[in-house]
Nucleic acid binder design. Structure first.
Length: 623
RNA sequence: GCGCUCGUAGCUCAGUUGGAUAGAGCGGCGGUUUCCUAAACCGCAGGUCGGCAGUUCGAGCCUGCCCGAGCGCGCCA
């Protein structure tokens, strides 16, 4: 046996064999990648080796001749059916078919729960959720939370040490506005701080925005131009003017509150902290409702970096990394070694205030230096793309990404597109409001419940609500995760309500059917964990091959931070199972096929549930 | 003006490091249940992969130009 490392990925095994064959037949090109991939056409084989065409050029021989030489040099006796002339096809593809016994042998060693783990994956920080203080979670937080949670779970599954960071927007003037507003309402007796709810805060936040921040220009009119406004004009705009003057006063108050907050004035901090606590608790609750793990201890508010910003900027200025331009402190990045970014990164305003780039720089420093991250993955809207390019480049330039051992941490923006309504515009309610996350989940749950009633789902009454929630959440999350991250997508309950085809509920359904097989037959699945596998029929083989793609699918998600690759795997797996199950009897098959098929069912079920768990999709026993 | 992203079947989307005759779902048409869940399975129809050129033995994928859509671009976050 040339291969001593037991692998449960047939493609990896075959790759290794072909590497040896290439080294043997063409020593000058020994490093050539064997390019073994699943066969595009299952009728031709299980896998194919595409190395001959590329090799042909390097060694100066016709590709088919190279393919023939490889076929002779490769040792596949224990793994594959013997290669025939017809297996060298087209320009030089080598079609490979695993022996049934070899496939069964590989699958027998496969353990879904430990598939794909890598030896030293290191520490990964995942920036996700990104809620704002005093605001309800809405559709704008949906993707960051769903994708971020799925990535965090998958990294964890692959063995990474994962640190989740919810970069809470809890600092700055808008926050001071709502804090001021809450203090006003509280002292006027219209608000009970002890029983503060997020809905109250959301209302007050919007009120404060409206009240304190009128359209630009009005402030100018109200403060400096007022004396020059004629009486006729004055009458026409009197209301606006009064409103603008009031807004200017309120704004001044809010700025005072901001200063007090920054100075840690006890009265202001007490109210602010209360708002923080209420926001974080509601966020955790909403995330739980989405089956996403975002807990209070994952919060890293902008406020937690506030005290570092002044010295951070001073430090960069002193080291010549930042410079003063027109009163502001900027980091220039328009050189090849800094990434050739034309727009400089602003880190301090002319008035001495800091910007979100400053906070993000401090966050990178903490994540790499304190949390020892090898990799930081930001699940943030694609519109922030330039911002992150700038901040990442500035962080690298500042040395914040250099770890104590000299290695450089990887910073990645896992950018995602916009959730659109059926009109193709950003998803809003009819009145133009953001759709609340909780409402979204409730509606999906209701629609799932309606389907369950209509289909007379096999669910006991006490599990009905929980199952409906699972199906609804699976529908929402799978719809979001299954498309490529960076693309916009249209959110459509009408399409989701069908729960047919390539949807989350289809995957849950496949799992529920498998569980039902064991339940109805009164069998303990664990009894079939080690029974012999017999893989004779095409559907059995296809299912086995589908299961064995799991490690590669997990690894691909880990490498590219793209959950849709796992969704594609899941859909293929569920499809392979459904085809198998439609074509063959399980319980009343003759032994040893019966036991073998039950083991296939068990493996499918475990793999399905493991992968769904990686995506943060809840599984169900029945539906 | 500059930059980023996207453009694949009527609709919604996959397409691995550049590999064979580009795949699914929905919708359409036709089948499958005395049998372990029909939220399923099987089949048929449907595509100049936005356009043109280039690189390559080979391009949906890489390069350039053009068209179309969206989003960004120093003192908001």
């Amino acid at each position: 046996m040339p291969d001593h490392t037991p692998s449960t990925d047939p493609a990896a095994l075959l790759t290794h064999r072909f590497s040896l064959a290439i080294a043997r037949a063409f020593p000058s090109a020994a490093e050539t990648d064997p390019l073994v991939v699943p066969n595009k056409n299952p009728k031709l084989g299980d896998f194919q080796c595409n190395a001959a065409m590329g090799l042909a050029k390097r060694v100066g021989k016709p590709p088919r001749e190279v393919a023939k030489a490889l076929a002779e040099a490769v040792d596949l006796a224990d793994l594959c059916e013997p290669l025939a002339d017809a297996d060298i096809a087209g320009p030089g593809f080598i079609n490979l078919r695993l022996k049934a016994s070899a496939l069964a042998g590989i699958l027998a060693h496969f353990r879904p729960a430990s598939a794909g783990t890598t030896p030293n994956p290191g520490t990964t920080v995942v920036d996700l959720c990104g809620v704002n203080l005093a605001k309800e979670m809405h559709v704008g937080h949906l993707r960051s939370t769903i994708i971020g949670d799925a990535l965090a779970r998958t990294f964890q599954r692959l063995g990474h040490a994962v640190v989740r960071q919810n970069h809470l927007g809890d600092w700055g003037l808008p926050i001071a506005m709502v804090t001021h507003k809450v203090m006003d309402e509280s002292s006027a007796g219209r608000l009970d701080l002890a029983n503060l709810r997020l809905a109250d805060l959301d209302r007050l936040y919007k009120a404060a925005q409206k009240q304190y921040a009128p359209p630009p220009g009005f402030e100018l009119v109200a403060t400096s131009l007022a004396p020059f406004v004629t009486s006729k004009l004055h009458a026409e705009i009197a209301d606006d003017l009064a409103q603008a003057q009031a807004a200017a006063r309120h704004l001044a108050d809010a700025k005072q509150t901001l200063i007090r907050l920054q100075r840690k004035d006890a009265d202001v901090v007490r109210v602010w902290q209360r708002i923080v606590d209420v926001t974080i608790a509601a966020c955790a609750e909403n995330c739980a409702k989405l089956n996403a793990i975002v807990l209070p201890e994952h919060t890293a508010g902008e406020s937690s970096y506030a005290d570092e910003l002044a010295t951070l900027v001073e430090d960069l200025l002193r080291r010549g990394i930042a410079e003063i331009d027109d009163g502001a402190a900027v980091v220039r990045l328009d050189r090849p070694e800094f990434g050739n970014i034309k727009e400089p990164c602003l880190i301090r305003k002319g008035d001495g205030g800091f910007l979100y780039a400053t906070t993000d720089l401090a966050a990178i420093r903490r994540r790499v230096q304190t949390f020892k991250a090898d990799r930081v993955v930001y699940c943030v809207d694609a519109r922030q793309s330039l911002h992150f390019r700038q901040v990442f480049a500035a962080a690298h330039r500042a040395g914040f990404t250099t770890r104590p051992d000299g290695t450089i941490a990887t910073l990645a923006h896992a950018a995602f597109g916009t959730v659109l309504g059926e009109d193709g515009k950003p998803f809003k309610t009819r009145s133009g409001e953001n759709v609340k996350l909780a409402d979204l989940i409730d509606e999906a749950t209701q629609r799932a419940a309606a389907q369950m009633r209509e289909r007379q789902a096999d669910v006991p009454p006490e599990a009905f609500d929980r199952t409906a929630w699972s199906v609804g959440v699976a529908a929402i999350k799978y719809a979001d995760l299954s498309i490529e991250r960076v693309k916009d997508y249209v959110f459509s309950f009408d399409r989701m309500v069908a729960f047919e085809g390539n949807t989350g509920p289809y995957l849950l359904y496949a799992g529920a059917r498998i569980r039902s097989i064991f339940r109805k037959a009164g069998l303990d699945p664990n009894a079939f964990r080690d029974v012999p596998l017999v893989l004779e029929h095409p559907e059995e083989r296809a299912l086995a091959l589908a299961i064995l793609r799991y490690p590669a699918a997990l690894a691909a998600v880990g490498e590219h931070a793209e959950p849709h690759r796992l969704c594609q795997f899941l859909y293929d797996l569920a499809g392979a199972f459904s085809s198998f199950y439609a074509a063959h009897r399980v319980i009343d098959a003759p032994e040893p096929v019966r036991a073998s098929r039950l083991r296939l069912c068990l493996l499918t079920s475990e793999t399905l549930e493991d992968a769904l768990t990686c995506l943060g999709i809840p599984v169900v026993e029945r539906m």
